[in-house]
């Protein structure tokens, strides 16, 4: 009897608890040595927040309350660290919505206003010149962006050329999701493939698995000038990503779940980009699918992208 009681007691202070406490002690002592004791007292709140942030769950396992809490913590941390008032949301997908995108190859003229709008909206790193969208200048007859020129910089449109925009296609059967060893990336019910930046370990398997070059790796937290930061953020979207994580187009989840258009669609000066709800037979995207000649890239891979190209 005594033996089993002891064992029970032992279990209470198990490996996990021990590690947790050990890590706590180590973090505190290292923080104390790094900042000095006075700094420690001043940054007490920040340390507590960071501590809780470090041990939070994967976003998909969080209860609504936990989502609320982590969003609040991140807002508070931005206030303390960067003196910035951001509004972060953890808005859930809307029922009966599946987002789809269409790109008009006849209309795009390569002005690249979508790219600048995307960089601005999603707080992309200005230092490494990260871009989620690439526009390729294509010879007539070319069907694959690999044959196009993605580095053009001259007056556009060039005669006898067309332009093809490529970004994350939000595949229904996405290879990147299956490649992720930590389940840090998944498909939301409204069809958006998202990344939990705090669960990503930066192994870049998903980048290798994506046949469309849709994902980007950051080598540093995004460097954005203070007054250019987009303050309306989403946990799964355009918040300032921590260093060493994968990021990608999220169909501007912070905008589209509020009913607005993605930044690229809004910025497009030629109306080449069409966005809407695939489940709604009245939507523009459904009109395009019904009445236009559409195709998807590398359909033979059965990735089932929700991004169609069409010609007028």
């Amino acid at each position: 009897m005594d033996d089993s009681k002891n064992r029970l007691n032992e279990k209470k202070f198990g490996r996990r608890t021990f590690l947790k406490r050990f890590a706590q002690a180590a973090a505190l002592s290292s923080a104390a040595s790094a900042t000095g004791c006075i700094g420690l007292i001043q940054n007490n709140e920040m340390l507590q927040l960071k501590w809780k942030e470090y041990f939070k769950k994967n976003y998909r396992l969080m209860t609504p309350q936990e989502k609320e809490e982590t969003v609040e913590r991140l807002e508070r941390l931005a206030k303390i660290e960067k003196h910035m008032d951001i509004q972060m949301s953890s808005q859930n997908p809307i029922n009966g919505v599946l987002f789809g995108y269409a790109f008009n190859l006849t209309r795009c003229e390569g002005f690249m206003e979508c790219v600048t709008a995307c960089v601005k909206e999603n707080n992309l790193d200005r230092q490494s010149h990260t871009q989620y969208i690439r526009i390729f200048e294509m010879e007539p007859g070319g069907m694959s962006p690999e044959t196009g020129n993605g580095k053009y910089f001259h007056e556009v449109p060039l005669d006898n050329h067309f332009y093809m925009g490529v970004q994350c296609f939000h595949c229904e059967n996405a290879p990147c999701i299956r490649a992720c060893p930590t389940k840090a990336t998944w498909k939301e019910p409204d069809g958006i493939v998202v990344v939990d930046y705090d669960w990503c370990i930066g192994c870049r398997y998903c980048m290798a698995a994506c046949p469309y070059y849709g994902r980007r790796f950051n080598w540093s937290a995004s460097q954005v000038p203070y007054n250019e930061i987009t303050k309306k953020q989403h946990y799964l979207g355009n918040r300032i990503r921590p260093k060493g994580t994968m990021e990608k187009c999220t169909f501007c989840v912070q905008r589209t779940r509020a009913g607005k258009l993605p930044a690229c669609v809004e910025a497009c000066p030629t109306g080449a980009r069409i966005f809407g709800n695939l489940l709604d037979p009245d939507s523009e995207i459904r009109f395009v699918l019904k009445h236009k000649k559409v195709f998807r890239l590398k359909e033979d891979l059965a990735t089932d992208p929700k991004f169609w190209y069409f010609i007028d």
Binding site: I94, N95, G96, V97, L98, G100, E172, N173, A258, G259, N277, L278, L279, D280, P281, D282, S283, R286, L289, D304, K306
Partner: peptide
Amino acid sequence: QRNVLDQVKQSTIHRKDLNQNDFAQ
């Protein structure tokens, strides 16, 4: 995995069926 096109073909949700209060505009 459900194919996108199958989902599209089976859908019967019209814009007016969605909760328009979400997008009060």
